[in-house]
Amino acid sequence: MKILGLALIFIASISFSQELNCRVIVNALQVQTTERAVFTEMETEFAQFLNTTKWTNDAFEEEEVINCNLVITISEMPSIGVFKASVQVLSSRPVYGSGYETVLINFADRDWDFEYVQSQPLRFNENTFTSNITSMLAYYAYMIIGFDYDTFSEMGGTPHFQNAFKIVNNAQQTSYTGWQQFNSVRNRYWLIENVQNPQLEPIRKALYNYHRNGLDIITKDRQQAEKVILQALSDIQRANRARPRSILTISFMDAKSGELQQLFSESNLATRRQAYNLLSNIDPSRTDEYKALIE
């Protein structure tokens, strides 16, 4: 079911019974240290935590496992065992009846500081904060699963987003950045806040229509698929008017802008104009790119 697509690098699945097939990449080129083995161990341990933990009560077949990447760029090591980093989170899901895989999440988390000791087990308790490593990894595990489920059934990711929200709540009393509403307008707190905000619910419903009723039928009925996707964009536009430039809207467009340009480039002029008007309104920073649709 999972087929390599786009420019994302996803590792081949071997045998999975859990929900995630996550590749973790640790880039520590900015850190000056002779002890490089710690970064290789991070990759292995973080990936093992994500890929062997059972995150849901659902049974997953091997071909249903969710492909994702976490690219961790370590910018500082203020002291031994203490790290400051940013994380790029990528996930995808296949488009039915095609060899194409569509990006669901392309999110940059710029504020992650943590302590890591080699050979120390990674422990996670969903009811309490235990470490900033497992809390961050578990948070994105639930977010990745939630967005994936939202594309297969309307609002289907709700229980997984609730688990992510619980992790954010547990982290409120810590001093770690990225969990509080006052640290930034683009962090873990605001991403889950947006997902659960009633004003932005049209975006989550649009995720289902865009993928299940749009992309998944495009090889069979392109005209109907285009109609559904345009309606999904219209729903996102409505949510964007209620909450302009929300992180959820920005995250959607970061994942989908290139795909939408390619998709509508094959449409008739009237459809391309409609797509251009919606896209340039929702995502004005890319207006010049979208102009190619009407030129």
Rank of each mutant, 00 (worst) to 15 (best):
S257N: 09
L4K: 08
T44C: 01
F264H: 01
T33L: 08
N209L: 11
V228Q: 02
T158N: 12
S75M: 09
D221V: 01
D113F: 07
V65H: 06
G258F: 03
L230D: 03
R241T: 14
L279F: 06
S251L: 03
A242C: 06
M143E: 07
R186W: 11
C68M: 02
T177W: 13
N67D: 15
D254K: 05
N27Q: 12
Y142E: 06
I9Y: 00
R204N: 13
N163M: 14
Q172S: 12
V195T: 11
L104Q: 10
E226K: 01
C22S: 12
A171G: 11
E115K: 03
F114C: 06
E41F: 00
F114V: 08
A28R: 04
Y210H: 14
R241V: 13
D150V: 04
A47M: 05
I72H: 05
R123I: 15
C22E: 03
L269N: 06
K84R: 14
E35Q: 00
I145M: 02
I145K: 01
Q173A: 10
A47H: 03
F46D: 04
S175D: 13
E266K: 11
A171D: 11
S86Q: 12
A164K: 10
I72D: 03
V89C: 11
R186F: 09
V71W: 07
R123E: 15
R222Y: 15
P202Y: 10
I105H: 04
L8F: 01
A138H: 03
E61H: 07
R238C: 11
L90E: 10
S92V: 12
T158K: 13
A28N: 05
Q173W: 05
S280K: 13
S86T: 12
C68N: 02
W179L: 05
T52K: 12
R245D: 14
S119Q: 14
T73F: 06
S257V: 04
L230Q: 02
S251W: 02
Y142S: 07
Y140R: 00
T40G: 02
S92T: 13
I282M: 00
F182I: 10
S265K: 07
V89H: 07
D58N: 04
L8N: 04
Y96Q: 07
L70I: 07
S131E: 09
S175Q: 13
A292L: 09
E295N: 13
F46G: 01
E259K: 00
F252Y: 15
A141C: 06
A37E: 14
R36A: 05
F39V: 05
R123Q: 14
N127H: 11
